[in-house]
Design a protein around this nucleic acid. Structure first.
Length: 457
RNA sequence: GGCGCGAUAGCAAAAUGGUUAUGCCGCGGCCUGCAAAGCCGUUUACGCCAGUUCGAUUCUGGCUCGCGCCUCCA
């Protein structure tokens, strides 16, 4: 029985799909004006894990992750670079696809881009105006009137009164209420724009998700996810727009993943304390990064540091070392196995991946003792559900650092053979010298009854 | 200021009203020519103060500290 922590209810709830056996899930993706950082990696990896688990559980999942390809920062950056917004966004969408592929993300079923849905946004905004939930202000912008939606604040637990009291920004005099948010911005010079009943302009941020969600998943769907920082105002505003326009509940389960932090502070573009995915991948194997992310519960904060990545790397090394030497055919998971049962229970409990890993490590201990093929297959199968441990052990253990300024595998094999000869001759001093030479190059040897193997540190 | 989340051993991170979490690191042993890997054992825990209870890290209240949102942000 799957339970999901629903932000809307502030508790774990038993998951009931709207249509039996089917799940419609929408996740807020990236605004593509720069490379993705580790915080973006977390959203991608977390909801990839969720997607995989839902599918493993037998649901027919439709997973949508949008791309925001029109916004203030995109326009600004494109102008700075002297290029069109499409040139800019296409470039960063490609970069995002590369990063995401490296992290082992299964592509969402649909990745709609905001600029392809302008017509739909105009229609929804018109509907909101007709219903009295939005108004065309004197400056040409169209605003959503939060006063008209009496459930405003239900997701973020805020009341309009409190929000107004905490208002820090200078009040836009064209708004009826300081908390009103923009649905349509009238065009300014040097900005891309679209024709609309309110003149040339472009959409506000929140409307795209309401429109693309409804377009692909229907007006009422099961799961909507994103980073915690989107809870307010983005998701709150999506609810206000969608429920006002459609007269029905928008989303049943809201999921929010915790932040990636650096030195106990949120990693964010505005703080400038972010590491891009590609920066981190220069130092660490992508699978280490994936394991690092999934090792913490998705709702907990995740502190980034080299020490923690190193720690994750050691853990993965333990997995791959245990799996070394096994041949795998197609390994179907035997779900009646007690460990598989517990794994399922952990995952069904709001995607408790740390608990799931504890079980996998128990399996490693069993495997190292028994060397049982059955256990090895179960370990690999269950880890596969999390998108891990699917490579050949050697690819992980011997991969690592690129061999630049290191030793080639030919040279390593040659040195190992020399050492074997010296050991046979019981010339241990020379054998140890060779081993030391290898160690200085980051190569660790392991003598086993089956021969000598090596791995990179 | 308003709202919310959190505090677990050297580090990371779960569960749990009474029984070994788990991983990394450390220490001892086995194995090994010596190592490495592995196995066995092991040292460090539940922020503080009350309350409920036979019993609380786990429930309740208060306090302290940290973090997040309230402004673009995954």
């Amino acid at each position: 029985m799957l339970k999901i922590y629903n932000t809307l209810a502030r508790e774990k709830q038993v998951f009931e799909p709207i249509d039996p056996g089917k799940i419609k899930m929408y996740v807020c993706g990236m605004t593509v004006y720069d490379f993705c950082h580790l915080g973006h990696a977390r959203v991608m990896v977390v909801f990839d894990m969720v997607n995989r688990w839902l599918r493993t559980s037998g649901f027919d999942v439709t997973y949508v992750r949008n791309i925001t390809d029109i916004d203030d920062k995109i326009i600004k950056r494109a102008n700075e670079n002297n290029e069109t917004i499409h040139e800019l966004t296409n470039r960063f969408i490609s970069a995002m696809d590369e990063d995401s592929a490296k992290l082992g993300i299964i592509r969402p079923d649909l990745e709609p881009r905001a600029t392809d849905y302008i017509d739909g946004m105009i229609k929804m905004i018109s509907a909101l105006i007709e219903k009295g939930f939005a108004y065309h202000a004197a400056n040409g912008d169209v605003f959503y009137s939060v006063n008209q939606f009496n459930e405003y604040g239900k997701l973020s637990g805020k009341s309009l009164e409190d929000l107004r009291a905490g208002e820090r920004v200078e009040v836009d005099s064209f708004k009826k209420d300081p908390m009103d948010f923009v649905l349509w911005k009238s065009a300014k010079p040097n900005e891309p724009s679209w024709d609309s009943p309110w003149g040339k302009g472009r959409p506000g941020w929140h409307i795209e998700c309401s429109v693309m969600g409804a377009h692909h998943l229907g007006r009422h769907f099961d799961i909507h996810g994103g980073g915690q920082d989107l809870q307010f105002p983005h998701h709150e505003n999506e609810i206000a727009q969608s429920e006002a326009a459609h007269n029905c509940k928008f989303v049943n389960y809201w999921m929010h993943n915790g932040f990636v932090r650096v030195d106990d502070e949120k990693m964010s573009k505005s703080l400038g304390n972010f590491f891009t995915i590609r920066e981190v991948l220069e130092k660490y194997d992508p699978e280490v990064v994936r394991f690092f992310i999934l090792r913490a519960h998705y709702r907990s904060p995740l502190n980034y540091s080299d020490q923690h990545l190193d720690d994750a790397k050691q853990g993965l090394t333990r997995f791959y070392t245990a799996l070394r030497g096994f041949e795998f055919s197609n390994s179907e998971i035997n779900w009646s196995d007690p460990v598989a049962q517990k794994f399922k229970d952990a995952m069904d409990d709001d995607f408790n991946t740390p608990e799931a890993f504890a079980l996998l490590f128990d399996l490693v201990n069993d495997l190292n003792k028994s060397r049982s093929e059955h256990t090895a297959a179960l370990l690999k199968g269950l880890a596969g559900v999390l998108g891990l441990l699917q490579r050949d052990s050697d690819s992980f253990l011997k991969g690592g650092e690129s061999s630049e300024n290191g030793l080639t595998s030919e040279r390593i094999d040659q040195l190992i053979q020399e050492r074997i000869d010296q050991r046979k001759a019981r010339n241990f001093a020379e054998a140890d010298r060779i081993r030391k030479e290898l160690a200085e190059n980051g190569i660790i040897l392991e003598d086993t009854p089956q021969g000598t193997s090596w791995r990179r540190e």
